[in-house]
Each structure stands twice: as structure tokens, then as C-alpha cells.
Design a protein around this nucleic acid. Sequence first.
DNA 1: TTGAAAGCGCTAACAG
DNA 2: CTGTTAGCGCTTTCAA
Lengths: 333, 333
Amino acid sequence: MHKQDVTIYDVAREAKVSMATVSRVVNGNNNVRKSTRDRVQSVIKRLHYQPNSVAQGLASKRTTTVGLIIPDMTNMFFAELAQGINDIATIYRYSIILSSVSNELMKEEDTVQSLLNKQVDGMIYMSDRLSPAVHEVFDRTSTPVVLASTLDADGDLPSVAIDYRKAMKQALDLLYQDGKRDLAFVISDYNATINVARRIPVFENFIKEHHLGVPRIYRDVLTYDQGEKVFAQLQQEHVDGVIVSSDLAAAGIINAAKAAGVKIPEDFEVIAAGSTKISELVRPKLTCVRSPLYDIGAVAMRMLTKLMGDEDLTHRKVKLPFNLVKQETTLNQ
Amino acid sequence: MHKQDVTIYDVAREAKVSMATVSRVVNGNNNVRKSTRDRVQSVIKRLHYQPNSVAQGLASKRTTTVGLIIPDMTNMFFAELAQGINDIATIYRYSIILSSVSNELMKEEDTVQSLLNKQVDGMIYMSDRLSPAVHEVFDRTSTPVVLASTLDADGDLPSVAIDYRKAMKQALDLLYQDGKRDLAFVISDYNATINVARRIPVFENFIKEHHLGVPRIYRDVLTYDQGEKVFAQLQQEHVDGVIVSSDLAAAGIINAAKAAGVKIPEDFEVIAAGSTKISELVRPKLTCVRSPLYDIGAVAMRMLTKLMGDEDLTHRKVKLPFNLVKQETTLNQ
DNA sequence: TTGAAAGCGCTAACAG
DNA sequence: CTGTTAGCGCTTTCAA
């Protein structure tokens, strides 16, 4: 049994034309007489001919494939981004090679290089941290890259995101207006660009301006369990308002607070700086910054298609509007 | 700027060997003298040579790529499966082409065919329903396929799953032992193989054996909102024990029940027949059937690697052990 | 509107 | 241990 039984050559022979003509028909090239086209198409149907994409890729140097570098696909945040990318990719008939880099089995730069070796036409990068090694690979290649929900703080890679500074500021304002003065910021990765270059400076500045003492930052809190655990520390330090980067961790904090008999939002307010379905299904419902994740993915993919078609981008750094959704973990005036 | 500047030919010339020898070095073939190997490797390094996977694929007829057909990547259930697949794939150096078939943009059989055209070495299929059209494509190809967390009820495609009959039976027993007599089964897709061929027969049989009247089955309940909505019906029909196929929908039911002042588990018990992180973060915590999702994915991928290496499978239908995790939505004796 | 022919970059006999 | 030589299946000039 063969992987491929019928090739373009078989079609050409049966239809009594050259391979070139079959190729034209397959690729929708108009320079074919209608009668010829019909004849070829009927042979294609009769023989169940399917073009070999690998051969097409080698000959044309286009694979109609894009690479997706994602930190962790079990994180709904990224899954929703990926869904937006996927849908647009499908419309444009691009396939997606998925690389989840959560495991330590392969270095990120090797993953990216492997994508390049597969001759992807473009890549979308959504890891929070753009290491120098990865950046170097991006710089060396002519294959277009778009960042989704991430930033390239120093460089100028095209990106789609929200205004993290503004979102952080609004969240802090809300806590402050509600009378909270002992604020904390709970994050997963301190060195993620969006944290170190955006949210943290805003947070520290806010604390300073309002004379709220020392900025309290808790790191490495990403999972539900880590959220549950960090609550004890928050309570010990008498924190009464907290911004949490992941809503999964925020769910842990909320449940731990409820278990400890703490009243939310009266005595303790929580805002998630990033959100997924989870913010809707915990009780009390989570006040959160809602990014248009699906749209971020969709826009990023659309930008990539332009880049892959050698078009220019009108905007290289796109900021999409976000929403501060006031729910039950803040006083919600 | 070119996509590929240095080819195997350049390396051969610089190292003063033939392309064949370079190819041998690249592929770790042992029939190369150490000194030659070293010389070639140093040239490879100096020139930053990277093999073109597309050309390799065309020449060798192996792409070291597998296709993943997934219904909806924003469903954590599938995301966790995919993670297991991804990790094993990474170990064996396979890339993953991801096809989310949730959108209506492309028919499933076309998606599968497109994967075949890309010359994937194998496929893992995780959609709940194996349509005749898709099955036909699978039957026609010699490319190996493994089903993960799905069944091929009539056919004999290799699969990895749990014992759905047993899981359903245990869940029903638990509700019955707790004194619940007005049972219902809430599912997303009635025609999913695991439902129509496994769970539903067990449910109907149970109802009959215990003389519990007419089996109540609620369909098309998949999302959180749909779960919230279906609760009104459950209440109206005085259901006191329900098995829900998706834990996301179960979360909706629980929250709606709480909002209606219904006491869980005293007056109303809930068991999720499939579970993810969500079962842990709702309150009360959800009693659920826990499938080893990551392992199912991992085992499926391992089976696929064997098939792709032309090895035989000792077991074509693997059943992994599951757990009925008793938490707060059942009386939990 | 069509065909001939030269690759795309690599692998895999085969011969030596 | 190494090189020669055909391809893999398709696209793409270039001529006709």
C-alpha cells in the first residue's frame, strides 16, 4: 500500500495534457482553456487525485503553514487566543504547527528553529518572555513573526495586545476608590515583559504616589493551588486589595479567603488582570480585566497573512480595547 | 534575503565531501569516519546549516509530523489530552499540526484529507463523533490513526479511553445509594459515540432495572450558560440526582442551584462524567469521573509512534483506569 | 493556451 | 567508508 498512488503525472497522462497544465488547473491559474480545464478536473475527480503538499512546498517555497509558539495549551488564556488564530488561519487555508513550550524537553529557540526548518511561512509567538536567544533567531530570519498578547519592549516586532499600563492603572484606581489601602500584586512570572516593563512600574508608581508604603509583589503564583496557598501570606500582611495576573490563581485566592471566613468584597477585594471563562464561574464572580483574546489572536493572524503576502502593515503595534468588568469581588458601585 | 541560504550542497563543497556524506552526518548514520564526521560537523556549524525539512520529507517520504484533530481547543478537556500528546511527540521529535474542527469553516473530512495531503506520518483523532465520511477517509489511507478518548464502536481503529460503561454505572450507583430516585442525564452531543453506544444504554438500563420511570436525558448542554439554563428544567421535573457529561456545564448547574436556594448535596446531587480543573474550583467541589487525560494523550501518541515505525500493537483498544472522585456534590459517605 | 525542461533540497540505493 | 546517480512530486520559467 502506498502513501500516494496517484500523482500529477498520472492525471496529465489520463487527461492527455502536460503536468504544467494540471498544475495550472490545480492552482486555479486562469490561462487554461475551459474545455481543457473541465477535462483535467474530471480526471482529477475520477482518479481521486490529491496534490502532495510537501512537493508543492519544495517547488514553490511556500508551505501555507504557520507556526504557533504557545507557553501552555492547558491555560485557557492561550487556548482562546489560539482559537482566534485558528479560525482566521482556516479561512486563509493555512495549517497550524503547534509548539507548546511549557515542557522542558526542548529549548524555546530550538523549537523556533525547528519551525523555520519546516519552512513555515510565518509564526505567531505568544510566550510571555522573549528571551535574547529567541529574539536572535527572529532577527536572523526573513520569515515574518507576530506577537500575540505579548510585547517586544525594546525591539520592533509586530504585536497585538491591550494597553497593559492603562488596564493596571484602572484596576488600581478601582481598589483605591473602594477604600483599599493595603494593596498587593500577585503574578506568575516577574520577568514576563508585560509585567516587568508595564504592570510593575505602574504598580510601584501608584503605591508611591499614594504613599501606600512598600509595594508588595508576590511571584510565581500561576496555578489554582498556588493561589490558594498565597492567600495565607496576603492575610498575614493584612492585604485588603489584590490584583492577580491569572484568574485561575485568583480563583484559588477567593476560595481560600471564603474558607477563612473573610468577607469579599467588604474586607478583601480581588481583581484579575487577565481573564477567561473561569472568572464567570467562581463565586463571588471575579472582577477582571477582560482582554479580547479571540480578537487578539484573529488580528495577529490577519497581520501575519499580510506580512506573508509581502504587504506592508499600517500599524505594527496594535492595541485592542479591553474592559474592566466589575463583578462581585469589588464593591461595584 | 532568502529563506534558505545554505544547503547541503554548500556544506558538501566546503567540507570537500559528497552530499551523501553530509546527509549521513546530519542523520546520524554511523558509516562515516570520525575525522570526516568532525570536519563536516564543523562546516555545518560554521555555515549555520539547517536541513530543509520539506526537502527531507519529499525525498524520504517521512515528515516527522503528526496531525491532531480536536473538536475545540478552548475546552480544557481536550487541551489536557493535547498536552499529553504534545509531550510525547516532543520526545520523539515529532511536530504537531493542529486542526481544531469546532468552527464550521471546513468539513471534518476535508480537514483530515488536508492533513493527509501534508503527508503527516500519523494522526490522532479526538472528536467525539466519527462520521461515516471521516471514517471512509481513515479506511482509505495507510497512514496510521489513533483515537484518543473516543471510540470506534463498529470499526477497529486503535483507541485509548476509559471504560465508559463502568464509569457510568458507578456514578449511577452512587446517586442511587444516596437515596436519589429522580435521576437525569445531561449531555452535550447525543450522538457522540461514547454517549449513544456506551453511557446512554447503561443509563436507560439502570432506570429500567430500578423501576425509576422514564429515563430523562437532556441534550445539547455543553457550556456554562447552557448548564445554568437547564437547571430550571431539572427543578421543574423534580430531578434530585444528575449526571452531566461536561464539568463546565455542571458548574453552571451547581451555580444555578445555589442561586435557587437548593441544597447540594442534600436535595440535589451532581456528578460530572468528564472532568478538568474546573471540578476543583467550583463550590461545592464537584464529584466527578476523573479520566487520566494527560495519560490518555500520552499513551495514544506512544501507540502512534509504534504504528508509524511499522511495529505491531499488543493492544489496539487500550482502557486506562479512571477514578470516581467523591467530593461535595454528593453525600460522600 | 500549452508543453518541455530545469530545478526545489534532500535521501537512498548502488557501486566501489 | 564514500561518491554517483536517480529520483521524491510539484512549480515555474521559457518557448512555441
